[in-house]
Structure formats: C-alpha cells, structure tokens
Design a protein around this nucleic acid. Structure first.
Lengths: 233, 233
DNA sequence: AGTACTTATTGTACATAATACAATTTGAAA
DNA sequence: TTTCAAATTGTATTATGTACAATAAGTACT
C-alpha cells in the first residue's frame, strides 16, 4: 500500500432518536438552513456532531443528545457506521459543513446511534438557534434530508425493530411511566407492523412479572377508564 | 464548539474471521513482529487496514479479506465501531503503526466486521510476509493481541451468536459444501453453547427444506458412515 | 465367520406456547 | 335510563418444544 493512498477522514456521530406519541413512531430531526446565493434553503438533518479530540464514540452520542434535549441516562445504542465516500458530495451539504465547521472537510465517516425517549418528557431544546421537531416515521420518505440521513433512519428503524423483538423491556423506554395495556399493545403493533389479538396480548402481558398494575386508572377519557401499569425491572 | 476541538482521526476496518474445524470455533489472526530496542516482540492482530481514499467501508473489509485469503463472495457483515481514544495508546502499537504507515497517527476509529468462511477452503495466504493462522476462540483470552482486538473478537463472537440464531442459514457458510447432520449439530451446539438432543435435532433439520440429503455417505470413518447433506437456498 | 465396537438412525408421549374467537362490564354522555 | 365506546376476561384448538432408548450399519479384530 503506498502512502499517498492513506486518507484521513473525519468521524462523526448521528443519533436516530425515536419517540412514540400514542399512535405513531416518530423521529427527532433538526431544522437546517443554508444560504445559497440569494435564497435560503431549508431541510432537516439528524442530530449529530463531529467527535471531539479524546472523546469516545458513545460519549459523543450522549453529548449530542444532551445538548439537544437536556436528557441524560436514556437508551442509546450504536447500530451502524456509514462511510460511503460520496455521502458528503452534495453541494448544499458541503456548503453547510464549511459554514458550521470553518474547515474544508472532504469525507466524513459517521457512527450512527439509536435512542429511545419518552415523547412526553419535557424536552428542553437547549440550543436557541436550533429548531427541533418530531416527525412521523412514515413521512420521512417524502422529506428532504441532509447527507444520507434518510438511509440512516431507515437502517435505524430496522435495527430498533430487531432490538425490540429481542428485548421487549425496551418498549418501556418509549412509553410514559404510567401506561395502559392498550398503549403498550398499540406501540407493539406499530413497531412490529402487526395487529395483535386483544385477549392474547393481555394474557401475554399478565405473565410479564415486570409489568405491574397500579391502583389507578387513566383520567379524562369519555368512556370506561383503563387501568394503569408501570414497568419495574 | 470551538474549532480547536475538532479532530481528524483515521478510520480503519478490522475483520473477525470465523471458521469451524469440526470441533471448535476458530478465528483468523495475523502474526505481528515489532522491533523493540534489540528484541523482537511477537504478538497477533486481526486482519485489517486503514481505509483508502474513496473506498467504502464494506469495500475496504472485502479488500482486506481478499488480500489475505484470496477469497471473494464470502459472508461479511459490519457489526460495531470502536473509537476509544486510548485504543492506540500502547507503545508497541504506536511503534508498529509508525513503521507500517510511515505516518504519525494519533487515533484510529475502527469499523469491525465479522466474516464466516469454510475452514477447509484452500486459503491462499497471499502476502508472503504475513503469517496467518486459525486460533481456538477459547484461547484468545490467554493471548497477547494488538490494540483492543481481544475486545473486538469478543464483541464479534457475541454478534455472530445472535446472527446465527436469527438466520440459521448462515451456519452453512461455516460448514463444508457436503456435511453430516452431526457436523451441523456440533457446530450449532458449539456456537450456542448447548447440548441438543440428537433425535430432536434430526427432526428439526428434517423440516428445513433447504437442507437436502445426498445419495452419498462420508468416507474414511472406522464405523457406520453418516449420510451427507447439502445446503440449497 | 463371528464378535466387539462405534456411531447413525428413528418414534412416541408429554408439556408448553401460540392462536382463534365474542360476550360482558364499566363509566361517561345524552 | 338509555346509549355509546372502550375495557376486561376464558376456553378450545393447534403448533411447537422436550424428554427419553432401542435398533441398524459398518469397521476392526480374533
């Protein structure tokens, strides 16, 4: 291998942050504005950052999430790295990188993470200059996203579907602290794209020792209120 | 974020290549020699390489494997990236990096892959100056490995155990083209660290349409020869 | 030829888990 | 008190997983 071939790309982390609003799976995206000639171009991107010197990958991902939402101790898991040499070739992406980093950046390999958060958490969107919003996972394909972030979201979705199959405990990262079995079932069915039988689902939940019934029912519904449950590891 | 904090690390790929010799799971390691003062220090490392300019991650991993073994079209799957800032801090590792790359390299983020190969493949160990050998997965913990390669192997093992549970088809990447059910069972039991019941295992295999019996039996055994099977996707 | 040895091959009974399916209860609203 | 919307609950059936041992086949030895 000749030395001229050795290349020194940058490394970043990107977070695919999932939430559940009671009906749909959502992803957290950051608004991005690019000054292009006399026009402003707007699109969306995943929360992410180039890693800092002496910063571990996991640490960088936690930092990104914390800077954006104020949240700590949330479920965060590396799932795949993306290093296509062309992933930073779009002219708008190059423009944006130069503006935000003040550097000529040729290539970025990004390490992608999935995060699961309770959408009802009072998210403190810290950085005053960044607009952050939840988007329905099904709308992503109709949106303009930076870099290869649409691919990353899609891969993250596949990953989290697997993970939730293997570790059903992770469902409770997405639900409020007190939830009904119907909410759990809706989430389960949304994630796995199935329609479970109500009775069989109740039966299955009944034999999960980590789902415990509370002495409370939901409030404010115009019909019989459902019992509330909590997750207890 | 101030610009002085933006760092530009190198990126590499490393391959954890698994094989099965009929009894044990094995990993392919490369011999490494480092001239240290007047002594030669020898240890082992994973096959890997810094990625080239304009080279995709998957492509780099294929290249590494092909340069080392001559094999193409083998199962190769990215599983995790390792970016601990201290992973390249060992003095011998630094020495070796400088010797082989002729560069001052501060930090390397590596993207790790698992590969599954038939150990009976006539592996052409191309590079005349690299000694390559199979090592029992259980011996790894008693060996001196470069960088954090012991961690990477351990994570790769965990990953491949998961994968083989979800996609039993992958077992056939490790077995010879013609195999006996006993070989398949031994492999299965080794990977999953269980001891299956012989009859129940046969039953399960019998209802795999992709395992087809041949009109042949194994040769050269000093007892009743077992029927041979092949995998047919 | 016969015996000993080693591994291959095969079935049944039982337990557990997954699935299909609908009537009744509860509380709020009219 | 009637209506409505959603919550709650059980049984029969099927499929899947598990425990368990006797016989068959081929080699090696005498």
């Amino acid at each position: 291998m000749s030395n001229e071939n050795i290349y020194n790309p940058h490394v970043s982390v990107d977070c695919v942050v999932f939430g559940f609003d009671g009906e749909k799976l959502k992803v957290l995206l950051v608004e991005r504005s690019i000054a292009e000639q006399n026009e402003m171009y707007n699109d969306k991107k995943l929360p992410g950052s180039i890693i800092l010197q002496d910063e571990d990958l996991d640490t960088a991902a936690s930092r990104v999430l914390n800077e954006l939402t104020g949240l700590k101790n949330i479920y965060l898991s590396q799932f795949k790295s993306f290093g296509n040499p062309n992933r930073t070739n779009d002219s708008r992406d190059i423009l944006w990188l130069e503006k935000t980093t003040q550097l000529k950046i040729g290539r970025i390999v990004t390490v992608a993470y999935v995060a699961l958060v309770k959408i009802n958490s009072k998210l403190v969107f810290n950085a005053a200059d960044t607009l952050v919003n939840w988007y329905d996972i099904n709308e992503i394909k109709n949106m303009n996203l930076a870099f290869d972030h649409a691919d990353i979201i899609y891969e993250g979705l596949k990953h989290i579907r697997h993970r939730l199959e293997l570790e059903p405990h992770l469902f409770f990262e997405l639900l409020p602290r007190k939830f009904t079995i119907t909410q759990l079932r809706t989430l389960h069915d949304t994630v796995h794209q199935v329609q479970s039988d109500v009775r069989n689902f109740q039966k299955k939940v009944a034999q999960m020792p980590y789902v415990v019934a509370l002495d409370e029912v939901e409030a404010g519904v115009p019909h019989r209120a459902a019992r509330l449950y909590k997750y207890k590891k």
